[in-house]
Design a protein around this nucleic acid. Structure first.
Lengths: 235, 235
DNA sequence: CCCGAAAGCTGATCTAGGTCATACCGCCCG
DNA sequence: CGGGCGGTATGACCTAGATCAGCTTTCGGG
């Protein structure tokens, strides 16, 4: 696949980092390096030094943790417009996550010093970056809350709600074709694959969802949201 | 207690947000509102709108989540120089955490629009903010990793390592006077109070720590770090 | 100095969720 | 067309950690 140029980029005018005047955009582009990544290609791994930030132009990238024994936890699936990585001032800080392309993806890498130089001239882009990092921060913190305070069923329901919202159909009767395996769902929720399967079956038995082939139909959006928020209620 | 003025502030020249030239500092101060908070006073709560950022001048503030049934989880204890809150561009985003003063604390509130205006003129401050948010982000993400992939004992050991590092004595034989109750330790680690107590007893039995009154002596810093990183090893 | 309340500790259960084993299904590929 | 292989599904366990209950120690305040 060929690189998409910024001029033709569909996400450029949606308040993202790269929403810039033509002249500024040229400078911006000069500061970054755009590349295409294949599915399953690793962008960076937990523990490596923080060299700069990545901007997702198109494609899907997952942020995840692995432990020494092969178990993974998926923090987030990032799409176009998202900013990946962390940029502490203190350069010897290490990255807290790994990232890997899910689909073929185009990303723009912004090396720390060049980015900082650019921000001197375009402070508004700095503000947008602050906003983007804030959104990531909120996401991570909610995840902490869910893991610490909610049960597995709530978390799974929450994930379904989130996925449904993303495609704009959190409504009873809507089919939600998920391109994730049970294993991936489990890794997003933080449970074993078997548990994820069992919990789906449980939601099905409660007539909150229906399962058709590999994808899911939302039978009762209200109940689903309720399960997502209410911790441990009726059976 | 009286307010400390920025000129006399001990954290001002440590690369924090407020490390500014005298003139810029005046502008900065004009953009913010400084106030003193009493212990247990709540600064903001999860779910409320994001109005701006708080800068900790002195004191200690905890960031935490509560669920509907009184259980708390402490995400982080923030000290002088830390930035609290989130500032997504999209103003109808909600805060993902609550914050409460632990000790009497002085904080400077920076309202969104005023902060943004200031950043136009002082882009370097924006870069510092990006760095501060990045550090917070890494912290939250590591917490996700620990909750999702590590056992309770590792997490507790990790907390002790972290506390010891903060006061600069992660060494065998060092007494680490913790100003936290068992309950608070438990809430930071994400377990019940009883479990935290039991795990401390377990570490003591393994001669990794010793318990004296309410505080803890590190008996074997190496083993402690090993428990913190290794997931589930020998008994 | 004393009292009550909070904090600490320990044992006895209970349970959510993990692990292991097995079976089925659809699908691609030789 | 038959045999794997990855995904899905379920049953039978097992264990980390929660919960509950009781008891002791510490501590802060009058």
């Amino acid at each position: 696949m060929r690189k998409i140029q910024c001029e033709a980029c569909p996400v450029r005018h949606q308040g993202g980092i790269c929403d810039l005047s033509p002249e500024a955009l040229d400078e911006f582009r000069a500061a970054g390096i755009t590349a295409i990544y294949k599915p399953r290609q690793v962008l960076f791994t937990e523990g490596s030094p923080t060299a700069g930030l990545y901007l997702v132009c198109h494609g899907l990238v997952k942020l995840y943790h692995s432990d020494r024994f092969g178990r993974d936890h998926i923090l987030e699936v990032a799409g176009p417009g998202a900013v990946l990585g962390e940029l502490p001032l203190n350069g010897d800080q290490r990255l807290s996550v790994s990232a890997e392309a899910i689909t073929e993806s185009q990303l723009c890498f912004l090396q720390r010093d060049r980015l900082v130089a650019f921000l001197q001239k375009q402070p508004m882009t700095g503000v947008r970056l602050i906003a983007a990092l804030s959104a990531e921060l909120a996401l991570a913190r909610r995840k902490v809350r869910d893991l610490a305070l909610k049960g597995a069923e709530s978390r799974l329901a929450g994930l379904l709600v989130q996925l449904a919202r993303a495609t704009g159909d959190l409504e009873s009767g809507k089919r939600l074709q998920l391109r994730y395996t049970r294993r991936e769902l489990a890794e997003m929720v933080g449970v074993s694959t078997e548990t994820a399967i069992r919990l789906l079956a449980k939601l099905k038995k409660k007539h909150i969802i229906a399962i058709e082939r590999r994808d899911i139909v939302i039978a009762d959006a209200d109940k689903l949201s309720r399960v997502a928020n209410y911790d441990e209620a009726e059976t």
